[in-house]
């Protein structure tokens, strides 16, 4: 995991420019196939209402493939960028841990960070309580977002449907710069700004054309 972070900080100078999504970066590994993850068969002893929640979780994962025209449900948590990317350092560790795990199991990524997401326009009740710039954690895995809500706590939750990833994860260009903490007493340096680039959605070639 540290090698990932390390490589990132070398490749990406910690400037504000690095925080923007890179529209021309083409990802070759974009949705091809979806593997069912972590939901090995539901536990035998689940009571009836628990098992129904489980089924819906499994369904939301299965829906992940980018079939044209079919809409997928995206769950998100949102808060101001400072909280999400600068203050909650364990959040960085969790995302890299999950990415490492997906890599080990060859699972297609189903979670992203979105800086100033366009979908927020549809959630006035959220935006009126939100400091900007805002950052959202978006995933097709509903239960995981529920877990992340439990962890982060100071975030707002909602969900929406979208027909493509590009649509779901569209964002407004924003510059992120965080003030250095006034009183940094930890016996280690802060995580380098820009770590979040790894988790931003890279727009697919098709939609760039």
């Amino acid at each position: 995991m540290w090698s990932v972070t390390g490589a990132l900080t070398v490749a990406v100078p910690p400037t504000a420019a690095a925080c923007r999504p890179k529209p021309f970066l083409v990802s070759s590994s974009f949705p091809k196939q979806t593997k069912k993850l972590h939901l090995s068969p539901p536990p035998l002893l689940l009571t009836s209402h628990f098992s129904s929640s489980f089924k819906s979780a499994a369904t939301s994962v299965e829906q992940q493939s980018d079939k044209k025209g079919e809409s997928t449900k995206y769950h998100f948590l949102v808060a101001n960028a400072k909280f999400m990317l600068d203050e909650e350092e364990h959040f960085q560790e969790q995302l890299f841990e999950r990415l490492r795990y997906y890599g080990e199991r060859e699972i297609e990524q189903d979670f992203w960070l979105v800086i100033e997401p366009k979908f927020l326009d549809n959630f006035p009740k959220i935006t009126q309580r939100l400091r900007r710039p805002a950052v959202a954690l978006v995933s097709t895995n509903g239960p995981w977002i529920t877990f992340m809500k439990l962890r982060l706590d100071r975030v707002l939750y909602d969900s929406f449907e979208a027909t493509s990833l590009d649509e779901a994860l569209a964002s407004n260009p924003t510059t992120l710069e965080f003030d250095k903490p006034k009183n940094w007493v930890a016996p280690y340096p802060k995580y380098e700004p820009g770590w979040w680039d790894t988790f931003l959605h890279k727009v697919t070639q098709e939609s760039v054309v």
Binding site: L39, H49, F50, S53, P143, T146, F147, L150
Partner: peptide
């Protein structure tokens, strides 16, 4: 239950 199901996952 949602939180516990999420944690179990």
């Amino acid at each position: 239950e949602a939180e516990f199901v999420a944690l179990l996952q």
